[in-house]
Design a protein around this nucleic acid. Structure first.
Lengths: 136, 136
DNA sequence: CTTAATGCAAACCGTTTGCATAGAT
DNA sequence: ATCTATGCAAACGGTTTGCATTAAG
């Protein structure tokens, strides 16, 4: 129920926000560019302006509903936040994104931050490669 | 000697390219946005157009002289390639960038790629935090 | 009724491109 | 002499903003 999510974030419940959440919640695709969300909504005949999509995504990011990534391509992509931290594997051929969690790497990062006396806030590990399907 | 570097890359030796290499070779700052390189050159009274800076950086990237990064901010930054792979620690307050190498993490990444049957081409680990100086 | 959210179009800004000129080999 | 590199200004594309309108609480 998206209403609850919005209410808890202190955001009003509006049609555009619900529609955008529905797109982000797509079962097969977790990572979305703002532009593609807008496109999908248009194809569904929904009337949501690009500006609204960007504004809503920014708000969502600020209240932690989504996370924003810059996968070395100059388009930002968003994904619904999940409780546990995870990293990404991006296929440079087809753009597919896989997620994974590795505790050993997580812990090592903490050590490194300590070594540099950094107060770590966040971290991103992205591996670029060619996925099994594209290798053929 | 930058001339050798360019010659080996098959690029003609031109004033703009040498000037840009000189900026990138700055002793204190390894990471540069195209715009800032252009700005520094202008302050030095050098006549190099922005377009040239971008073109040259792209060529440099293609022949491996520099590496391009997108540190979750929508400006790309470039650094002279170093022989060994390294990762980054970025201070979100002052923008300072530290570099580090961690073999354990490197090896784990290889394992993960194998688990997903990805042919790994490249990877980026960036940690965001607040540096010692900014913590005060 | 009050205030925040939306759509539209125009503005922005980092980056790219077309084209005529200058420069490297 | 040939062909690439450069500067300029105009184009581009993703993202943001101003403003009048609409809708949520």
């Amino acid at each position: 129920m998206y209403e609850k999510l919005l209410r808890e974030a202190g955001l009003k419940i509006t049609a555009p926000r619900l529609k955008i959440l529905a797109v982000l919640h797509h079962p097969q695709k977790r990572h979305w560019g703002a532009e593609s969300i807008h496109q999908v909504l248009q194809e569904q005949g929904e009337e949501v302006g690009v500006a609204t999509v960007y504004r809503v995504l920014t708000q969502f990011e600020m209240c932690g509903i989504v996370q924003k990534h810059f996968f070395e391509n100059d388009v930002s992509v968003f994904e619904l936040s999940s409780q546990e931290h995870h990293d990404h594997l991006v296929c440079v051929e087809c753009g597919k994104v896989e997620e994974f969690i590795d505790e050993v790497i997580e812990q090592h990062q903490t050590k490194i931050a300590a070594r540099f006396k950094f107060k770590m806030l966040d971290h991103r590990l992205v591996m670029y490669g060619v996925c099994e399907a594209c290798l053929k």
